[in-house]
Design a protein around this nucleic acid. Structure first.
Lengths: 139, 139
DNA sequence: AGCACAACGGCGGTAAGAATCCATTATTGA
DNA sequence: TCAATAATGGATTCTTACCGCCGTTGTGCT
């Protein structure tokens, strides 16, 4: 796998939110109903996304979570970094610490173009793309 | 990261073996000396590689581990699968189980070419490439 | 003001991965 | 045959990710 399951939950949760609520507000109970998303854990994940500025939240009656920006301005890369910290998508195939040192890991050069492409994909693909893809299948 | 740390140890251990011993035999003590590879843990990892047919081993005095095939016949993909099992490099970006279901995950199509390229890289890159890259830097 | 509601945050448990220790087995050399 | 050696395998510890429980805090409605 490329992302941790926590990050995957973040992506799926946000994706659900984008499809079902768009820029509107939505509660966790509604969002996780009918899905296999673990409500309690997703609550934790969403808190991280609030702190990262991807979501906004409001308490009490009528409260819930809302996307802080339009769907096309939230990329997979931003989500991953919000959960796993900056540099989440750095690091070489081998995961060598030496990659940061003066002597980069042997595979650095070979893997470089692949990682570049992967990073491009993660940076340019947004929640809007996910939502569109989901709606297309349902329609 | 893409691979588990266990897989990374496998790759690094085999890479060391390829560079320092080639097709010859080498003991764990020698191999891990001067590196940050955890000897005891690498012993476990190497056992998996023996069972997977990537390494051969011999006990007792003069024993050690030897590559079961020429370096150019051992790919990163084979190593990863030996550790993480078959299908280690399958699965979509989102890690959705629905990818196997009649309704593939929304990003399946978008991510497909990237994964294809990644798998190509892992399948075609071998220990010979790693060893050559390492020697190049040292020389 | 008071009540219901929903996010917030601390704590705790389970499971898998990572790593170590030690006893056992097999091999070589003297 | 005996001793030294090095991999093998079992058991155990430690860490981290994943997930749930529950009290707290803040908000809106009546």
């Amino acid at each position: 796998m490329f992302h941790s399951t926590t990050t995957q939950y973040a992506i799926r949760g946000l994706s659900e939110l984008a499809v079902r609520a768009g820029q509107e507000s939505m509660m966790l109970d509604q969002l996780t109903a009918g899905t296999d998303l673990p409500r309690e854990f997703l609550a934790k994940v969403f808190q991280q996304l609030v702190k990262a500025g991807i979501l906004t939240s409001s308490k009490g009656r009528g409260g819930g979570f809302t996307l802080a920006r339009p769907t096309h301005q939230i990329s997979l890369m931003q989500i991953a970094q919000a959960i796993e910290g900056p540099g989440a998508c750095d690091g070489c195939v081998l995961g060598l610490s030496e990659c940061a040192d003066p002597a980069p890991c042997p595979e650095h050069d070979l893997y470089k173009p692949i990682r570049q492409r992967l990073n491009d994909y993660l940076s340019t693909t947004t929640l809007a793309d996910l939502a569109a893809s989901v709606k297309c299948r349902k329609g």
